[in-house]
């Protein structure tokens, strides 16, 4: 009970601070200076119609690289702590056979889900979408595969292969920016093309596709490890 009272006092303090934040907030009529620069110069400089994409991939590209690194280290830590069960142990546990309906619809739907994920990250510089969204959609497709065939353990090598290849290629393109353009992760190593078409915005579609593959593989790996976790005694 005493602990709850202390927690309540701490929470009241935080609520007071947040109330101050809320009271001092005034809605703005114009963009702040940094955003104004991005909105004015961004489309001509980088050629990307989606300004969020140009901020994520190029202007703040280093943040995105760090973020992908965090995802990678989380996936490795989870892999370190949770030992996967082998296929024989999974079979011995006796999963109920999945239904005919689920099998058939999985075979029909999973390619379409993967295709939609690829569409979302390839068109990330033109429309809402991009690597993170497309990667999450691809991970949902993998999840459907896991649900349909709980005992299979094939996809593991594919997942780790996609993960490492896309990660290396992402950093490689970033380094190519140092030599061919203005700096690390600069997208103008490829021609920026005509504004608003699919082959435009330099390397942004390439980088965002690699991020999409990487995020999809990491999230699939995390789901996989949580699904197959073995109890050790």
């Amino acid at each position: 009970m005493v602990k709850k009272i202390f927690a309540l006092i701490a929470l009241a303090g935080i609520a007071f601070m947040l109330w101050g934040l809320f009271k001092s907030y005034r809605h703005q009529e114009t963009l702040p200076r940094t955003s104004r620069y991005y909105a004015q110069k961004g489309p001509d400089e980088l050629g990307s119609a989606n300004l969020v994409t140009s901020v994520v991939v190029t202007y703040r590209g280093l943040d995105t690289l760090g973020e992908v690194t965090i995802l990678f280290s989380v996936a490795s830590i989870i892999g370190f702590f949770l030992k996967s069960r082998t296929q024989r142990e999974l079979k011995a546990e006796g999963f109920r056979e999945t239904s005919e309906l689920l099998h058939t619809s999985t075979a029909f739907l999973v390619p379409i889900i993967f295709l939609f994920g690829a569409y979302v990250f390839v068109g990330g510089h033109l429309s809402p979408g991009g690597g993170f969204q497309g990667g999450a959609i691809i991970a949902s497709g993998t999840l459907l595969l896991f649900l349909a065939t709980p005992t299979a353990s094939r996809g593991k090598t594919i997942i780790s292969l996609v993960e490492s290849v896309s990660g290396v290629a992402y950093v490689g393109i970033g380094i190519a920016g140092i030599f061919l353009a203005a700096g690390f992760l600069d997208n103008r190593i490829l021609p920026t093309g005509r504004f608003g078409t699919i082959f435009s915005a330099g390397a942004i579609p390439v980088i965002y596709s690699l991020i999409g593959l990487k995020v999809g593989a990491e999230l699939s790996a995390i789901l996989y490890k949580l699904k197959d976790a073995k109890e050790d005694e």
């Binding site: 989606n50 969020v52 994409t53 979302v120 809402p128 979408g129 991009g130 993170f132 969204q133 999450a136 959609i137 949902s140 999230l219």
Partner: peptide
């Protein structure tokens, strides 16, 4: 963009 990410993830 944020809406798509939040809905999927």
């Amino acid at each position: 963009d944020v809406a798509m990410t939040e809905a999927a993830i």
